[in-house]
């Protein structure tokens, strides 16, 4: 669903990832769907996993891509929407925070 205003995204709880030398691999543990992320999108994912706020990511992205802050903000928004459709991230209803807790390794079964 697409709406105006601010939205909060969180990582889908069943998404696990690994950063390789030239790409980042994401896997959805239940369906086993996978995605390869590289380039600027890999950078965005990296900064998301460091829990950077959006404005910081936008600023870094604008320098990385050599674009304006506004263009970087649009690029960030666009990739988040793409990942939402793919089931990698999801919108949190209201202002409820996403799942807290420590990093966890893949341990669940099917």
């Amino acid at each position: 669903m697409i709406a105006d205003g601010a939205s909060a995204y969180c990582c889908v709880p069943t998404i696990v990832w690994v950063k390789d030398a030239e790409q980042t691999i994401l896997i959805e543990e239940k369906t086993k769907h996978s995605w390869i992320v590289s380039g600027e999108n890999a950078a965005i994912w990296d900064w998301l996993t460091l829990n950077y706020p959006s404005e910081r990511i936008v600023r870094l992205l604008s320098v990385l891509s050599g674009t304006s802050t506004e263009e970087a903000r649009k690029a960030l928004s666009a990739i988040l929407q793409e990942w939402e459709k793919a089931g990698i991230v999801r919108v949190i209803e209201g202002n409820r925070r996403g799942e807290p807790g420590d990093q966890r390794r893949l341990q669940s079964g099917l």
């Binding site: 697409i2 709406a3 105006d4 205003g5 601010a6 939205s7 909060a8 995204y9 969180c10 990582c11 709880p13 069943t14 998404i15 696990v16 990832w17 690994v18 691999i25 896997i27 998301l48 996993t49 460091l50 829990n51 706020p53 959006s54 990511i57 903000r73 649009k74 960030l76 928004s77 666009a78 988040l80 929407q81 949190i92 925070r97 996403g98 799942e99 807290p100 807790g101 990093q103 966890r104 390794r105 893949l106």
Partner: peptide
């Protein structure tokens, strides 16, 4: 064992498509 989950949380202004 190299894979992990990170529960990040991000607020962003959403653009209308």
């Amino acid at each position: 064992r190299r894979f992990r989950h990170t529960p990040f949380h991000l607020k962003v202004a959403r653009e209308a498509v």
